[in-house]
C-alpha cells in the first residue's frame, strides 16, 4: 500500500476497519452526482445504496439496515431535514452526514440539532468526506457497542439479579483459591 501513496484520494479498504463493508445510503436528487459518488465509494469498499428522493430513501431504509447515510438538503418533495428527522427517529444507530450545495452556518446548526453527524458543503474533497464517514462510522460503532454493552449488562442483571461488575467480582472470587 505504501508504494501507491502518490495517488491522490488514497483508497482505503474498508476491510481494514471491520470485517464487513460499511452499509451506506446516499440520497440526492442529482442522478449524475449520485451515480458518480456511489461508484467511487463502492470502489472504496462501501456497500452503497442510492435513493433520488426522500420518500424512496425512507422506504429503502425500512427494508435494509444502514450504518451511515449521505443526505442532500434541497430536494423536491421531502426536504433533507425532514428525511433526517425520520431516519434518526426510525433508526437508532444510523449516522447521517449532510452534503449540500446551499451550505450555511444556520442550516448546519439546525441539522446538528436534528442529529446529523457531519455537514459538508458541496463541492468537497473526497478525503474530507472519507474522514467524516470514518468518524461517523466510529461514532456509530461506539454507540452500538455502548448500547450492546448496556443491553448485555441489563440481560445479565436480569439473569443474575446482579450488575455485570458484581458478576465479574464473583467470577474473580471463584478463580481465587479458597484460603
Amino acid at each position: 500500500m505504501s508504494t501507491q501513496n502518490d495517488f491522490p484520494g488514497d483508497p482505503v479498504r474498508e476491510e481494514t476497519w471491520s470485517g464487513t463493508p460499511i452499509r451506506l445510503l446516499i440520497i440526492d436528487d442529482e442522478t449524475s452526482f449520485l451515480n458518480a459518488i456511489a461508484q467511487r465509494l463502492q470502489m472504496r469498499g462501501f456497500d452503497v445504496t442510492t435513493a433520488s428522493n426522500g420518500n424512496t430513501a425512507i422506504e429503502i431504509a425500512r427494508k435494509h439496515k444502514f450504518d451511515l447515510a449521505l443526505l442532500d438538503l434541497k430536494m423536491p418533495g421531502m426536504s433533507g431535514k425532514q428525511v433526517l428527522e425520520v431516519l434518526k427517529q426510525e433508526h437508532k444507530f444510523i449516522e447521517v452526514v449532510i452534503l449540500t450545495g446551499h451550505g450555511s452556518l444556520d442550516s448546519a446548526v439546525e441539522c446538528t440539532k436534528l442529529g446529523a453527524f457531519g455537514y459538508l458543503p458541496k463541492p468537497y474533497e473526497l478525503e474530507n468526506l472519507l474522514d467524516t464517514l470514518k468518524d461517523a462510522f466510529t461514532a456509530r460503532m461506539r454507540k452500538k457497542f455502548e448500547y450492546d454493552h448496556d443491553r448485555m449488562e441489563e440481560i445479565l442483571s436480569l439473569a443474575t439479579g446482579e450488575s455485570a461488575l458484581g458478576i465479574l467480582r464473583r467470577l474473580k472470587e471463584m478463580d481465587t483459591p479458597e484460603k
Binding site: 442529482e30 458518480a36 452534503l99 450545495g101 458541496k122 468537497y124
Partner: peptide, 27 residues
Amino acid sequence: HEINNPLAIIAEETGLVRDLMDPRFGR
C-alpha cells in the same frame, strides 16, 4: 448556491475518472 451542485458533479466525475484509471482499483 445552485452553482455548487453542478460543481459537485464535476468534482465527483473527475474523481471517478481518476479512480477508474487508478491501477489500485483494478478497473
